[in-house]
């Protein structure tokens, strides 16, 4: 029973990080109909930002610098790699996204070498807490709480504010929204900013637990989080949350029962089953193809 609780806690913590990244996928896909393959690598670069800013400044400022730098990176990627392809066929945009991912990975290998770099320990986060018979670190407990608070804030932003309204409008109908005077580019940039910001938060929580960053540490979590977004229904924020937790918990359970070679494959099996049974995901809206 204790062992089970221990694993469940780890699973929920990993799931929280996944949920934060999955939201980035879901928001971008909702608006641009694009799998942002580079999102996982933005998450990885955020890890490096933290390492380097932590080395030269006190940790509260380092965290803020990391968040801002990652957000700027997300907006820049959109401006340079996706904005020029607004009218292009979807395959071109997707290849562009893969290209950005390829570029970020190679750039990281070039600048920081392929060897894993130690992630700084933020004071207090690794403190061990003992509840009953379970011992865990503070970050494990903190992750799901941070995730849920951020998602609540995001839901408020999307549903109650003006910029949220324009985001919803653009995702519903791109052309009609621009005819109604919504500034498309601004809205899209804002979406990327939020996605990257959440990825940066996720990255701090995830890497504090993992302790090392290397150039490819973003690619697999990135794909898993995309699966989480599809599972919950792409375009839906609560869906991404549920999907993230589901994938995180299942993965931890599979590792716990000794099938770790299959833990990555499992994620993709979930994806394929979901796409076959209910392509719109748990909370997704039905999409009707028009001629």
């Amino acid at each position: 029973m204790n062992l089970f609780l221990q694993h469940a806690l780890t699973g929920i913590s990993v799931g929280g990080c996944y949920a934060l990244i999955a939201i980035g996928y879901t928001l971008v896909y909702g608006i641009l109909r694009l799998i942002n393959f580079a999102h996982g690598d933005i998450f990885m670069v955020a890890g490096y930002f933290m390492i380097f800013s932590f080395a030269v400044m006190p940790f509260p400022i380092a965290i803020i610098v990391t968040l801002i730098a990652t957000t700027v990176l997300g907006i820049m990627i959109e401006k340079f790699a996706y904005a020029p392809l607004r009218q292009a066929p979807r395959m071109s945009v997707m290849i562009s996204a893969i290209g950005v991912s390829y570029l970020l990975q190679n750039l990281a290998t070039y600048l920081f070498t392929a060897l894993p770099k130690a992630y700084p320990a933020i004071p207090g986060l690794k403190k061990v807490i003992v509840i009953g018979n379970i011992s865990t670190s503070l970050v494990t407990l903190l992750t799901p709480i941070v995730t849920i608070v951020l998602v609540a804030l995001l839901l408020f932003l999307v549903n109650k504010t003006k910029i949220g309204l324009s985001m919803r409008a653009v995702s519903r109908d791109y052309e009609a929204a621009s005819l109604m005077g919504i500034k498309l580019n601004q809205t899209i940039s804002f979406t990327f900013a939020i996605g990257s910001l959440l990825a940066a938060v996720g990255s701090i929580l995830y890497f504090t637990d993992r302790m090392t960053v290397f150039p490819f540490s973003g690619s697999l979590p990135g794909l898993k989080c995309f699966v989480a977004a599809v599972f919950g229904g792409i375009g839906s924020i609560p869906g991404a949350l549920v999907g993230g937790f589901f994938i995180g918990i299942c993965e931890t359970i599979i590792k716990a029962i000794g099938l770790s070679t299959f833990s990555d494959a499992f994620t993709f099996i979930v994806l394929i089953i979901m796409l076959l049974i209910r392509p719109t995901g748990l909370f997704g809206e039905k999409n009707i193809d028009k001629v």
């Binding site: 979807r90 794909l223 494959a265 993709f268």
Partner: peptide, 22 residues
């Protein structure tokens, strides 16, 4: 999986490739 449309197909084939590897 060939019933799936563009990006879903891409991610599903990628998934199968990872499953084969695992």
């Amino acid at each position: 999986i060939l019933r799936l449309k563009s990006d879903y197909l891409a991610i599903a084939t990628l998934g199968f490739s990872e499953i084969i590897r695992a």
